[in-house]
Amino acid sequence: MNGPHDLGGQMGFGPVAPEQDEPQYHAAWEARAMGVTLACGALGCWPLDEGRFARESLHPAIYYNATYYEIWIRALESLLVKYGLVSAGELASGRGRSRPRAPSATDA
């Protein structure tokens, strides 16, 4: 099916902005996102094509706004829930636990 990913020939995205000496990742979490996604792929629950389809199935408003590895993580989360490996509640509470906290005496 077509969708937001089907970009060939679309107009309006502006010029390409190649970056000199581009780093492999632009934040540490991007490396973890890549590694976690590949590690989960190795569980063998879904084929690569289904992983791709999960990314392509994101709502266009999300797909166009998300960075590349954010698209990967959102798709991975949806697959983990679909295959019963992680519940939506666990994802939500996990995220809740990571909210900013006040510095404590144990922070160096």
Binding site: A27, A28, W29, R32, A33, V36, A39, C40, T67, Y69, E70, I73, L76, E77, L80, V86, E90, L91, G94, R95, R97, S98, R99, P100, R101, A102, P103, D107
Partner: peptide, 22 residues
């Protein structure tokens, strides 16, 4: 990057949480 939890951006927090759960 640095490791102070109080500076996590939303994606950093999201990926850390996911990796922890898994």
């Amino acid at each position: 990057d640095h490791e102070h939890d109080n500076h996590l951006d939303p994606m950093d927090a999201r990926v850390r949480a996911l990796e922890t759960i898994l």
